[in-house]
Design a protein around this nucleic acid. Structure first.
Lengths: 372, 372
DNA sequence: CTGAAAGCGCTTACAG
DNA sequence: CTGAAAGCGCTTACAG
C-alpha cells in the first residue's frame, strides 16, 4: 500500500546529475546553475519527490520541532497558551509536540525526557515545582533552549514569561479601596507549599517575602491584595482571607457562602482565579446577593461567557494566548541565539471594568468630601 | 554549551565490542550474551548514553509519533479530545504533534503536509469538510494510518469515531415528548453547507436523507429531533426550529429571546451544542423564565460548571476525552495492522437527567390517565 | 558550478 | 553469539 518513497538519488539519476547537486537544489543550499536547477526541479516534480526531514535533521542537528509541557491541556488556561504557541510555530513552519505533566514532577520529568528523545529544538515548560526541578536544570545544562511560562524556577536562569500577579492584584484591589470598600474578601487557593503561610506573608511591613516570584500565583495575588491595603494605609483583616486550599469551585463556593452569611459580610469580593470565580458566583447566587448593589465582584480571570451569564463583574483579564505567542517568540530567538542574556518578562494583565465596582461613600465622603 | 553527544560507537569502544553488538544490547534487538550485555550497559551508563531516535527512525521507518489535526485546540471540545489522545499516546510511549485547521480546508491541508513531513506513524483528524478532502484521500492512498474523529468524509474508508448524534437527539427529545411537551423549540447552528436545508430534511417521511452522516452535527441533531416527533406521531412545527446560522452564543441568545417572547412560546428548549446552550441560558435569564417551572431545558453538551451556575438543566453528555482515547487506540491498532477492515464507531452519549424535564400533564393525562 | 567521497547515528543482513 | 560491511536519505567539506 505504502508507496516506495522517492529519494534524492532517484531524482539525481533522472536528471543526470550527482546526488550532491540534486541535494543542493532540492535542499536549497550551495550553488547550482539555472539550467541544472531547472532540470532537477523538473525531475523532482515528475517523481513527486518529498524531502525526508528525518535524514535532514539527523545531519543538521535540528528538527524544526518545539516541545511544550503544560499541566493539563484540557484546562482553558493551558489550551489558550498552546494556541498562542501553535500559531507562532505554524508561522515559523515548525512542528509542536505537546505533553501534560498533571502538575506532577515525575510526569514532568518523563515529558522532558520524551521531548529530548525527540530532539526538539527547544521547549516551553510551565514547571510544576518552582524549586525541585533537577530535570529542567539538566536540560538547560545540556544546552536545550528553554522558556518558562507562568511560573519560574528558583535559580534557573532561562527566559521566562509570567503575569505580574502581584502588581495587577495590587492595582485591582486598590481600585476597590479607592471606591470606598473597606471589607474586601479574598477567595484564593493558597495551598500550603514551600513553607508559605498567611501569617508569614502578613507579618512584615510592607508585606512581601523576597522570593514571592517562586510561589504559586494565588500567593502572589494575596500579596498584591495586602500591598494594596498597605498602600491605602488600611489594615487587612485576616478573617476576610478565604484560604480554599483546594483548587475546587465547590469548596470555594462553600467558603464564600460562609463569609457572605457572616455577621459582618464583605462589601466586595476579589477572586484569585477562574476556578475560585465560578465558586464565588455560585455562592453569590445562593445567598441571593445582587451584583453590584449588594456586593462588588473583581475576578482575576477572563470570565468569557461566565460574564455573558452574570453581567456586571469586573475582571483582571489574562492574555493567555498572547503569553503563548510571546513564549514561542522568545524560544525562537533563543534558538537563534543561545548565548545572550536570559529575558524575564512580566506581563501586566488588563483590568477590564464592567461596572461592578460600585462606589461606596464613606461618612467622610458624604459629609465633607468634595463631591458632597 | 551543548554537550557533545555520546554515540553507540563511543559505548562500543569503551566496552571493547563492535558497534553492531553495542547496538544490539542498547537497542534491545538481536542476540547478546549476558556478559557482553552487562559490559555494554555499564559503559553506556558511565558515558550517559542516550539513543538518537532520529537515526533509529530513519532506518526503522517509524517515528513513534502520531499527529493530530483539530479545528481549534482552544475549544474545550477539542482540548478534551486531545487530552484523551495524549493519555493513550503517553501510555504507548509515543509523541504527539498537534495542529489546528481553524476548520479551513487550506490550513488542514498544510497541517496534513506538516505531519507527513514529520513522518508521523499515523494521524487523527477531525476533517473540516466532509466532501472535499483530496489531501486526506491522498494521505490514505499513500498508506498513512488515519482515523477520523467527530466527522466522516464521504467515500473515505478509514477508521472513524463519531457520536450517534441522530440517535441521542432522538432519544432526548423523545423524553421531552413523553413528558408531555408539545412545543419543543430547537436552537441549532444549522449553517447552510452541502446543500442541506430545513425544508429538504423535513419533506420526507420518515425524515432523513441517506447521507446525513456527512453533514454537520447540528443537522444530525435536527434530524433526531424530527424523528422523535415522527416516532410520537406528532407533527413538528417549523416555527419552533431556530436556525442560528452562526456559531455564536450571542446570536443564539437573541434568537432564543425572540422565540421565548412569541405569542405561543415553547414549553421546552433543546439546544444542539454548548455554544447554543450558553446563548439559550442567557436568553432564559433575560426573559426571567424559571427552570424547570416555566421551561424545561435539554442541552446537547457537557455543561460542566455551566450546570454548576444554573442547576436543573438536563444534558446529553458527550464523552470527549473517551472519544480521544478510543480514536488513539483505533490508530494504534491500525498502525499495527494496516490491512484489516476499517471500523466505523458511533458512540452513544449519556443522557444525564438532572430534573429539568418537567412532566406536563395533558388533558388526557389529568382526566383519564392511569395516574389520575 | 559540479561530483566523488565521507559521514550523521543508528540497524540490518551476512558471514563466521 | 559476535563482527565487518553496507545502508537509511540526506548534507558537507574537498577537489576539480
Amino acid at each position: 500500500m505504502r508507496k516506495a518513497t522517492t529519494t534524492i538519488a532517484d531524482v539525481a539519476r533522472k536528471a543526470n546529475v550527482s546526488t550532491a547537486t540534486a541535494g543542493r537544489v532540492l535542499g536549497n543550499y550551495g550553488y547550482a546553475s539555472e539550467t541544472v536547477r531547472k532540470k532537477v526541479q523538473k525531475a523532482a516534480r515528475e517523481l513527486g519527490y518529498r524531502p525526508n526531514h528525518l535524514a535532514r535533521s539527523l545531519i543538521r542537528g535540528e528538527t524544526r520541532t518545539i516541545g511544550v509541557v503544560v499541566g493539563d491541556i484540557q484546562s482553558p488556561f493551558y489550551a489558550r497558551i498552546i494556541r498562542g504557541i501553535s500559531d507562532v510555530a505554524r508561522a515559523s513552519d515548525m512542528g509542536l509536540i505537546i505533553t501534560n505533566s498533571d502538575e506532577a514532577t515525575d510526569l514532568e520529568e518523563q515529558s522532558v525526557e520524551l521531548l529530548m528523545d525527540k530532539k526538539v529544538d527547544g521547549m516551553i515548560v510551565s514547571p510544576c515545582d518552582t524549586i525541585n526541578a533537577a530535570h529542567l536544570r539538566a536540560a538547560h545544562e545540556a544546552g536545550i533552549p528553554m522558556v518558562l511560562i507562568d511560573r519560574r524556577v528558583k535559580g534557573l536562569e532561562v527566559d521566562s514569561i509570567s503575569l505580574d500577579s502581584v502588581g495587577s492584584a495590587r492595582a485591582g484591589v486598590g481600585d476597590l479601596l479607592r471606591a470606598g470598600h473597606r471589607r474586601i474578601a479574598l477567595v484564593a487557593e493558597l495551598a500550603g507549599t514551600g513553607g508559605m503561610t498567611i501569617e508569614r506573608i502578613m507579618s512584615s511591613s510592607p508585606p512581601g517575602p523576597p522570593d514571592i516570584n517562586y510561589h504559586y500565583p494565588s500567593w502572589q495575588r494575596l500579596l498584591g491584595y495586602l500591598l494594596a491595603h498597605h498602600d491605602a494605609g488600611i489594615a487587612p483583616q485576616s478573617d476576610l482571607i478565604c484560604q480554599v486550599k483546594s483548587y475546587s469551585s465547590k469548596v470555594a463556593a462553600k467558603k464564600a457562602v460562609e463569609i457572605l452569611r457572616s455577621d459582618t459580610p464583605p462589601t466586595a469580593l476579589f477572586t484569585a482565579d477562574g476556578v475560585m470565580s465560578a465558586g464565588v458566583m455560585a455562592a453569590v447566587k445562593e445567598v441571593g446577593a445582587r451584583i453590584p448593589d449588594d456586593i462588588s465582584l473583581l475576578c482575576f480571570d477572563d470570565l468569557d461567557w461566565m460574564e455573558f451569564m452574570v453581567p456586571g463583574i469586573d475582571a483582571i483579564s489574562q492574555p493567555r494566548k498572547q503569553m503563548g505567542q510571546m513564549a514561542a517568540r522568545l524560544l525562537m530567538e533563543r534558538i537563534a541565539d543561545p548565548t545572550s542574556e536570559p529575558r524575564v518578562l512580566d506581563l501586566v494583565p488588563r483590568h477590564v471594568e464592567r461596572g461592578s465596582i460600585r462606589q461606596i461613600l464613606t461618612t467622610e465622603g458624604v459629609n465633607g468630601g468634595p463631591d458632597a
